[in-house]
């Protein structure tokens, strides 16, 4: 399969990429790792006239450790999964990135690409939501930050404006009393999430739950927080019974997608199961 013809640009900077986006308008698509875009082009589901390849823009690469982890948008999943600062400060992110697709996919696919594409079955949007990551973007009007909660609007649709580029994503560094986990039911061939659940908890010194964030991907048109589960858990002892009760509330107010791989009913049931598993592990990790 061969894509329709397009013009190709490889700008050297984000500013140059934005200029090209402004110049070519709706005709143009940004290309990063290409592992969502190129399959769509090969199937002619998408036929942009211009591709702007930002995968080798230096300022979009690299992982900076500080109070928060700042990760360049064009950093590959493989680079994230093996980075010592990520493994040390935000292990759930490395864990999630390290199980996407297969190693060849992880050597190409990028953090920013995954978030900007917002595939309903992508893994990282759930982790971004559960960890309250911030997405830094740059556009013709300048730079701004999009909170994880505002990012994922609809299937394949984000809060990005047409000529904006994701530049970096910042994640918290987890400390004592905090824990996070990603639990996933994966499609056996594509390894996309049929259901993926990311959970984050912070515990009080007495072991009760001070804060919780839970997000589901794969089951519906977009990755989504599970507020009822979070509220039920906060203030609880964070024991098995409290987790099970909170997990039962997951996915109740969500929209679902059913397909040949899994029905809506099955996904609804699995959201509860994987929410429980993710929360159990997150709490266990928070207890150290």
């Amino acid at each position: 399969m061969i894509p329709a013809a397009f013009e190709y640009f490889a700008p050297g900077s984000v500013a140059e990429a934005i200029g090209l986006l402004e110049q070519h308008g709706d005709e143009a698509k940004l290309l990063a790792g290409g592992h969502s875009l190129l399959p769509a082009l090969k199937l002619r589901l998408s036929q942009p006239g211009v591709l702007i390849d930002i995968s080798r823009v230096a300022e979009l690469h690299g992982i900076e450790a500080g109070d928060r982890l700042s990760i360049g948008a064009a950093t590959t999943y493989a680079a994230i999964a093996s980075d010592p600062a990520v493994l040390g400060g935000c292990a759930v992110l490395a864990e999630c990135a390290g199980q996407i697709g297969d190693i060849q996919v992880r050597n190409r696919g990028t953090l920013g690409g995954a978030l900007a594409h917002a595939d309903p079955a992508a893994d990282l949007p759930a982790v971004v939501l559960a960890l309250d990551a911030a997405i830094a973007v740059q556009g013709p009007a300048g730079a701004r930050s999009i909170s994880a909660d505002d990012m994922f609007v609809e299937m394949l649709t984000t809060a990005l404006e047409p000529n904006e580029v994701v530049t970096r994503v910042t994640f918290p560094v987890l400390g004592a009393g905090e824990g996070a986990s990603y639990a996933k039911l994966k499609h056996p061939a594509s390894r996309y999430a049929i259901v993926g659940v990311a959970a984050y908890v912070r515990l009080h010194a007495d072991g009760s739950v001070a804060a919780a964030r839970v997000a589901v991907t794969g089951a519906g048109p977009r990755a989504e927080r599970q507020h009822a589960t979070e509220s039920a858990l906060v203030g609880s002892a964070g024991d098995a019974a409290a987790i099970a009760a909170a997990a039962e509330l997951a996915g109740e107010s969500m929209e679902y997608l059913g397909d040949i791989h899994a029905s809506e009913t099955y996904r609804r049931a699995m959201v509860k199961v994987y929410t429980r598993r993710a929360l159990e592990q997150a709490v266990a990790r928070a207890r150290g």
Binding site: Y8, G34, H35, L38, P39, Q104, V105, N107, R108
Partner: peptide, 11 residues
């Protein structure tokens, strides 16, 4: 290692 069916030669 990468999958050469999903990378452009120009890349």
């Amino acid at each position: 290692s990468i999958k050469a069916c999903t990378v452009l030669a120009v890349q």
